[in-house]
């Protein structure tokens, strides 16, 4: 299988706190990879390193064999290919939902306004948010915001999407609508890396699950292996709090 990312011995510290202590990982095309672990284990940091929202302290990240930390790498171009969905949605507050979806296409992908709008409308339709295209993000519910944020990411035609706890800031009632949208993308075959606490969802959509603890990958394998037959003590301990 073709590798999208190859991560080698990645470390990241926040001041004296070691958050990532040497991560080695390959992420493949057509794969949905889920990262689980308790809060503070470094799973979000790992995800944020992948599109350089956090800059690693040492180690390498290769994207199709290219070192993304190479000074000659066009980071902005790279980021447009690696979509990101945030826990707090981060929709642009000063524009409509449609403009949220258009702005990146025009300024980064250099599409003309007409084409960008057409694509944006398609993507908003995909996530069921077309009715809200002229709304401001501040008037939407959490679930609607997250669906709009997913549409914004999709408009950039990303090769892979990183989702950082996409449902953690939502009311329980709204989790379903967002997970449905993500599931739809999975079925389309878009590769994803998901950080989540939704174990049932992880089990349903993932090809591979990684369990992280204290900045290291403790265990990885198929959802069945990791969630139902964990081998490591730490994994068992973590999962005992979830009814899987």
């Amino acid at each position: 299988m073709e590798e999208i990312f190859k991560i080698e011995n990645l470390t990241k510290n926040f001041k004296s706190l070691e958050v990532l202590k040497g991560i080695d990982l390959s992420i493949y095309k057509n794969e949905v990879l889920t990262i689980i672990g308790s809060s503070g284990c470094g799973k979000s940091t790992l995800l944020r390193c992948l599109n350089l929202l956090e800059y690693p302290d040492s180690g390498k990240i290769y994207y199709h064999g290219l070192d993304i930390m190479d000074p000659n790498m066009n980071v902005n171009k790279y980021r447009s290919k690696v979509g990101m969905v945030f826990q707090n949605f981060n929709l642009f507050n000063n524009m409509s939902i449609l403009d949220n979806c258009v702005i990146g296409q025009i300024n980064v992908l250099k599409r003309n306004k007409e084409e960008a709008t057409k694509i944006a409308i398609e993507r908003l339709k995909d996530v069921g948010m077309l009715d809200f295209k002229d709304a401001r993000s501040t008037t939407l519910s959490g679930g609607q915001k997250q669906r709009a944020a997913i549409a914004r990411t999709l408009c950039m035609d990303p090769e892979v999407i990183l989702l950082d706890e996409p449902t953690s800031a939502l009311d329980p009632e709204m989790v379903g609508e967002v997970l449905d949208v993500i599931l739809k993308l999975v079925k389309k075959g878009i590769p994803m890396v998901i950080v989540t606490h939704e174990m049932l969802f992880a089990k349903e959509v993932s090809n591979r699950i990684i369990f992280m603890d204290e900045g290291r990958i403790v265990e990885q394998g198929s959802p069945l292996d990791v969630l139902e037959n964990p081998k490591q003590e730490r994994t068992k301990q973590f999962l005992s709090r979830y009814l899987v």
Binding site: M84, N90, F92, I103, N107, R152, M156
Partner: peptide
């Protein structure tokens, strides 16, 4: 800061982020 991170995540440059998202707000 999330506004800025969202800008960067779709590939806007620093000055594009300022111009279209950060400065208007």
């Amino acid at each position: 800061n999330g506004q800025f991170e969202a800008c960067r995540s779709i590939g806007l440059t620093f000055f594009q982020s300022l111009r279209y998202v950060i400065l208007p707000q």
